[in-house]
Design a protein around this nucleic acid. Structure first.
Length: 734
DNA sequence: AAATCAACGCTTTTT
DNA sequence: GCGTTGATTT
């Protein structure tokens, strides 16, 4: 048999992992060492060489994106339909199992998944029902407690108060919250995993069935698994199974949400037959970048040990830029990107990475004034937008009357005379009779005032009518109908601020429904879900990234966390300052600091050829000017790998704020003596209005260099800001 | 029920 | 400093 296509393009280490005899395996894969390649080739190897049935393979990832990518690559390799393989996220696969086994899992068939927002609302509702003060029991913290317990695989009755009143109350809240979820047939994200775990643990028939079926479970990004995910995996694979996991302890950056790097070690203990493979050859970054990453990460303790190397050349040094302030930093980045574009590079090859989302703002402003297309990743996702959630709530209510969260959300949206008074009566009744809000509203008509009662009746009638009306329609028309007939559309049309964008999003929801292929999702295949039901689950599980790719070549902006798994020819690591990165809330604990360092490691290893590190000596943060020293991580990179760049002989400075400008000269230039020069030879000053033959009128923002190399930056009214050679441009002062 | 105001808080994020 | 959220006002 010809297996060359499976192994030809692999290096030794990769090949050993891919062709390992069937059995448990751990692949420690450094950044850029081809771990996805190993994973996909392993699947192909199992199918083509070991004659494993695709049906008995499950591949688990953390994000939908990774799952889709893996499926595409496997499909490409196998040249076979990949439907029989289970490929998905932990949550997606758990969901699929629960849709099949809802009865055994003691769930209503119509159970709904709640997102973080729904969860918080439910907690607030519970707090209110128990008459507890939200100041004392902060909903966010309660949610956090509940999720942490579920992530650890613990139910309220597994928990002890340990004489701690606070904890005791939290446990009670957890129990009350769980009751509320059960009543409404709601399942939160952590519950998906916990339910499936319990299902397999307590139902030995099912356990045996799935162990027999899935002899080959493969896991990507194993270092990000939390306690319940690992227990889930062990239960599914069983002691005789052959889990094949890939991970990198140095890229564990999610401990703060429950990921346990320790699972890597535990895995080695739990499977004595385990074979360990190390992938250390890096195909992404040039030598200097790798050296920097290796040296940095050496400062962490308790690593499994790994040293990345490359056959490629050293490449450039890492450029270090010390900016005067955050504006200067963003200007610097924009200029370097512009330079890159001028030399024929793409904007999408450039990534601006930062520690926290708030930092994107300054860069966005700089990009806008430079007319440079950009895209910021993160922030509000499509399915998390208010108007989308409103529409989905209507759809959910149409699909399932028992969905209290949705009921609460839209009962008075748009306002239809069902105020707090009316709802309080309904809620009380529901609480007293342990029934859903819908049933309470239906049963309790006489207790309501006539006004509220009639309005409520009208609302319920509307929902019923919508269900009738859409019964025979294709999915996207169902969505369209509900948006129009619920009154949402008119409501947002009348909203003067921001309403237009909302309408557009609602229209986008209709086209998302049109493009939604229920057959593609794991859920639909599992049971007789209606397309609507499948779409609703899809909407919660899949946050709606990847739709708005309009194809324009854009500079990429995102947090370091978001950048994991990606690579770019040119990377800017910005805001490298103490208290920002490492973040002030992480520096006190050694484990927190080490996670920050791993985050920095992730950032450095995103870069293929050009890496820029920058920090600002002064930065406006939370409305205050603060001065931070350069990040300790810069010092941990050997200085011979760094090249400080000071492109400006002149200090660029804000034009209109004069008091500010004078301090900049002292604060900034350290090595070279730079005298402040106010005038250019032509008598052009900063802030001077000028006229250009082609670009029209503008204002001089900066200038650099002297003699024949003198350049000025001018902001033109119509053409944006441009750098001009003074000797060539023939500027006329106005 | 809409509009306006004060208070808060401010890492990282997927599902 | 800004955006969100809850409370208060009309």
């Amino acid at each position: 048999m010809d297996i060359s296509h499976l192994v030809d393009k692999l290096n030794d280490a990769q090949r050993q992992a891919v062709t390992a005899p069937i059995g448990p395996a751990l692949v420690l894969a450094g950044a850029g060492s081809g771990k996805t390649r190993v994973l996909t080739h392993r699947v192909a190897w199992l199918v083509e060489v070991e004659n494993v049935s695709p049906q008995s393979i499950m591949a688990v990832t953390f994000t939908n994106k990774a799952a889709a990518e893996m499926r595409a690559r496997i499909e490409h390799m196998l040249q076979l339909p990949t439907a029989p393989l289970w490929i998905g996220t932990f949550h997606g696969i758990a969901h699929r199992l629960l849709r099949i086994h809802w009865r055994e899992a003691k769930l209503p068939q119509s159970f709904q998944i709640m997102d973080a927002d729904d969860q918080q609302r439910t907690v607030k509702k519970v707090l209110k029902a128990l008459n507890l003060d939200e100041e004392r029991w902060v909903p966010k913290e309660v949610v956090w407690f509940i999720n942490a317990q579920k992530d650890a695989g613990l139910r309220p009755n597994n928990l002890k108060s340990e004489g701690d009143f606070n904890r005791e109350q939290m446990i009670k809240l957890y129990a009350a919250y769980q009751d509320a979820c059960e009543r409404g047939g709601m399942v939160d994200f952590a519950e998906l995993l916990l339910r499936v775990f319990e299902l397999l643990r307590d139902n030995l028939d099912l356990q045996a069935h799935y162990r027999r079926r899935f002899q080959h479970v493969l896991v990507d990004e194993f270092q990000d698994t939390n306690a319940i995910q690992y227990q889930w995996l062990r239960l599914l694979a069983g002691p005789e199974g052959n889990p094949f996991v890939v991970g990198d302890d140095d890229q564990s950056i999610y401990a703060w949400r429950g990921a346990k790097v320790g699972n890597l070690l535990q895995f080695q203990k739990d499977y004595s037959r385990l074979k360990v493979f190390r992938l250390e050859q890096n195909y992404r970054s040039s030598g200097n970048i790798l050296k920097a990453a290796n040296k940095l990460i050496e400062n962490n303790s308790g690593r499994m040990g790994k040293n990345l190397w490359t056959q490629g050349n050293e490449g450039e040094l890492i450029k270090l830029y010390s900016a005067y302030n955050e504006r200067d930093e963003s200007d610097f980045v924009v200029n370097r990107i512009r330079h890159w574009i001028d030399k024929g590079g793409k904007r999408s090859e450039c990534a601006i990475l930062y520690r926290s989302n708030a930092q994107s703002r300054v860069f966005e402003e700089a990009m806008i004034s430079a007319r440079m297309p950009y895209k910021v990743y993160g922030g509000l996702r499509f399915f998390e937008r208010q108007e989308i959630k409103d529409a989905l709530a209507y759809l959910r209510l149409v699909h399932n009357r028992g969905d209290d969260t949705s009921f609460e959300r839209v009962v008075n949206l748009p306002t239809r005379g069902i105020g707090q008074r009316t709802m309080e009566i309904v809620r009380d009744y529901a609480r007293a009779n342990a029934c859903t809000l819908w049933n309470a509203a239906g049963a309790n008509m006489q207790a309501l005032g006539s006004k509220g009662g009639i309005a409520l009746h009208g609302f319920m009638l509307m929902i019923e009518k919508m269900e009738q009306a859409i019964r025979e329609l294709p999915l996207h028309e169902q969505v369209d109908h509900v948006i129009a007939h619920s009154g949402l559309l008119t409501h947002y049309r009348n909203d003067k601020n921001g309403g237009e964008a909302r309408i557009e999003n609602l229209e986008e929801l209709v086209s998302a429904a049109r493009g939604f292929n229920a057959d593609n999702t794991n859920a639909a295949e599992a049971g007789e879900m209606t397309p609507l039901a499948a779409f609703l689950s899809h909407a919660v599980l899949e946050s709606g990234e990847g739709q708005a790719n309009d194809g324009e070549d854009c500079v990429q902006m995102m947090t370091l966390h978001t950048a994991k798994g990606l690579e770019f020819p040119m990377v800017f690591l910005c805001g490298m300052e103490e208290n920002l990165f490492p973040h002030s809330r992480s520096v006190n604990e050694p484990s927190g600091l080490e996670e920050e360092r791993r985050l920095c490691y992730v950032g450095i290893t995103r870069a293929m050829k050009h890496l820029f590190i920058s920090y600002a000596e002064s930065r406006r943060l939370h409305g205050m000017d603060s001065h931070h020293s350069p990040s300790r991580f810069i010092r941990e990179i050997p200085s011979e790998l760094l090249e400080e760049i000071r492109p400006r002989i002149q200090v660029s400075r804000p034009v209109y704020t004069s008091g500010y400008a004078s301090s900049s000269a002292n604060g900034y230039s350290s090595s070279r003596s730079s005298k402040m020069v106010e005038d250019t030879p032509n008598g052009i000053k900063l802030g001077q209005r000028v006229r250009h033959g082609k670009y029209g009128e503008g204002v001089v923002l900066k200038f650099e260099g002297d003699g024949s190399h003198a350049r000025v930056e001018v902001r033109f009214e119509r053409q944006g800001t441009k750098w001009l050679m003074l000797a060539m441009a023939k500027l006329e002062t106005i």
